[in-house]
Simulated assay, not measured.
Amino acid sequence: MSQEFYQQIFNKQQNLEAVPSNKEITKWALRVIHLLYPEQTAKLFATIDELKQEFALLEAELHHIMEATKACSDCDNKKRAASFFENLPALYQTLNTDIQAIFNGDPAARSEFEVIRTYPGFYAISLYRLAHRLYVDDVPLIPRILTEYAHSKTGIDIHPAAVIGEYFYIDHGTGIVIGESCNIGAHVKLYQGVTLGALSVDKSMAFTKRHPTVEDNVVIYSGATILGGETIIGRDSIVGGNVWLTKSLPPNSRIYHTPSHRILKQLTKRIFGSK
Rank of each mutant, 00 (worst) to 15 (best):
W28P: 05
Y221F: 13
G165M: 10
I158A: 03
R31K: 15
A56E: 15
K23F: 03
P251D: 13
G234Y: 10
P38A: 05
Q13W: 08
L130A: 01
I184P: 01
L249Y: 08
F55S: 02
E230L: 11
L57N: 12
V201R: 12
N183C: 10
I145T: 11
R262C: 04
Q14I: 14
E180W: 06
I125Q: 09
P107S: 09
V214W: 08
S222Q: 14
Q7L: 09
K27H: 13
D202L: 10
V188H: 08
W28Y: 11
M205T: 11
S200C: 12
I145C: 03
I220T: 08
D202T: 06
R144T: 03
Q192A: 06
R80E: 12
D74F: 06
I99N: 08
T147D: 11
Q266P: 00
T118F: 15
Y191M: 03
F122V: 07
H151Q: 15
Y167Q: 06
I142V: 14
R31M: 07
K79Y: 09
F85G: 08
I233C: 07
A81E: 11
F84Q: 06
D49L: 05
A206N: 12
Q93L: 13
Y92C: 01
V194S: 10
N104F: 04
A68Y: 02
L249A: 06
H63R: 13
S204D: 14
L227I: 02
